[in-house]
Design a protein around this nucleic acid. Structure first.
Length: 449
DNA sequence: GTGGTACCTTTGAT
DNA sequence: AATCAAAGGTACC
């Protein structure tokens, strides 16, 4: 412990409206950041990162593990530069959040009303594998327990890195670590419930069938991976593999992934449905147009965007068609980074942030009171309602029509296929017929390995 | 092809 | 005190 290698504090210039770690790290994107003594800590890519923030800068220091005698550890100076790039990529700092908020506020009155209390919320560019497993854990669950479960995964299966104030920090375990024999039973003992099977089976698929590289190939090519060298590392790793692999690799260059393809591909994993797939696309693969529709966003869509209301009498519940319709609507009004805007409203809707929402809402009401009494009446209650929001009323007919066609396409893919077919990036024409998501077939895949 | 229901566990509300 | 719904859903019938 005394032999931990710790760098000095460094800083990146950034304003609180561009990034607010207090909100971004607590809003249910990443489940591993822990706050100790006013500093945030998390292991990313083998190193412990500690963060603190003031109005003008993000301060960070790095703690490297000592015992693991990788050659890199002998040159800590290389790592400091690496960490700066890592943080830049992790927080996706190439996007101007201020500009995005301004655009969303112009095109959406509801966003303009909610966002002022929740500035600085960014979508994190996280590791795809970690995002996948974390959000498999998230089903029918709450943020507090998800965080506990992810912590258990790390302490039981991930490599130890460092200790802060007596608390051990491990990195997130790789697919191989979670693909072992007794993992499912062990995770059940640890309180994972029915998710234990999903995690073990998905780990088996990724580690033994699809290959770890498969996940990286689903990334948005325009968004760099956490470490720029990540793809190269994986390519090198598998260079000695069979010829078939390299052929696939060439085919991929001709067929770059799209959001739709990535979404479909993830659906083949056990425990991954549309919502979890969208979370991985958005936060783990760099697809900004992905909009995960969970119970909260569905509530928002009904309350603030006229979904599931009088117009569409039948659909009170969120079915597959409605899932697509809601996402399409948000993409329409928010544009290519719709998933980023979604996370702002999502956070504003969380119970754990209700004070923050109420606080600014009160201030706003006072302001409005001076200007317009009529508006004041509608917003004085605890739950404000959309006032001048008629411009974004949903065109239900159009949405349902689109959803219907998509639904047919989605259902068509529910066919069992040989395991070898799945890992490949399919040609456009056959995308919908080459995937399966039945538990039986995923077991078959595992048993073939 | 849709819509309902079970699934693990914890927590907060009645 | 006991019971219940909800928690960033998915698989199966």
């Amino acid at each position: 412990m005394a032999s931990q290698k710790v760098t000095e504090w460094r800083k990146l210039p950034i304003s609180l409206t561009e990034l607010c770690i207090e909100t971004t790290l607590r809003c249910g994107q990443s489940f591993r950041w822990r706050k100790i003594n006013e500093q945030w800590h998390c292991v990313l890519k083998g190193r412990l990162i500690s963060l603190k923030q003031d109005p003008t800068h993000l301060h960070y220091k790095v703690t490297w593990p000592t015992s693991t005698a990788t050659p890199k550890n002998e040159h800590p100076q290389d790592f400091e530069d690496d960490t700066s790039v890592l943080l830049h990529n992790y927080f996706a700092l190439s996007h101007s959040l201020t500009t995005l908020y301004a655009q969303w506020s112009l095109s959406d009155a509801n966003f303009a009303r909610r966002a002022p209390a929740f500035t600085g919320i960014r979508i994190l560019n996280q590791d795809a594998w970690e995002t996948l497993i974390s959000f498999i854990c998230s089903s029918n669950n709450n943020i507090s327990r998800i965080s506990q479960m992810v912590l258990k995964l790390c302490t039981h299966y991930g490599p130890y890195v460092a200790t802060v104030e007596g608390e051990a920090f491990h990195d997130f375990p790789g697919p191989e670590a979670l693909a072992g024999e007794g993992v499912e039973a062990h995770l059940r003992e640890l309180g994972f419930g029915y998710r234990a099977k999903y995690i073990a089976e998905t780990a088996g698929c990724v580690a033994q069938v699809y290959g770890e590289r498969w996940l990286l190939r689903l990334r948005n090519p325009g968004v760099p991976a956490l470490r720029a060298a990540e793809e190269d590392i994986l390519v090198k790793k598998e260079e000695g593999a069979e010829e078939k692999e390299s052929v696939e690799s060439k085919a991929d260059l001709d067929n770059p992934p799209t959001y739709q393809k990535a979404h479909e591909a993830l659906l083949t994993l056990p425990g991954v449905g549309p919502k979890v797939s969208d979370c991985v696309c958005l936060m783990g693969l760099g697809w900004g147009e992905s909009v995960p529709i969970d119970t909260h966003v569905w509530q928002i869509a009904q309350r603030d965007y006229n979904f599931g209301g009088k117009g569409s009498a039948k659909t009170k519940t969120l079915n597959k068609a409605m899932y697509v319709a809601v996402g399409d609507h948000f993409r329409k009004i928010w544009g290519p980074q719709a998933g980023w805007a979604q996370s702002v409203l999502f956070t504003a809707n969380l119970k754990s942030f209700s004070e923050q929402a109420a606080g600014v809402e009160k201030k706003r009401v006072v302001k409005v009171e001076e200007e317009s009494q009529e508006e004041m009446v509608t917003t004085a209650e605890v739950v404000p309602k959309p006032g001048k929001n008629k411009g974004v009323v949903v065109k239900i007919e159009e949405s349902e029509e689109m959803a219907a066609t998509t639904s047919v396409a989605m259902s068509r893919k529910r066919k069992t296929v040989a395991a070898e077919v799945i890992p490949k990036a399919e040609p456009d024409a056959t995308v919908q017929t080459t995937t399966t998501r039945t538990l039986r077939s995923s077991k078959r895949i595992k048993s073939q390995v």
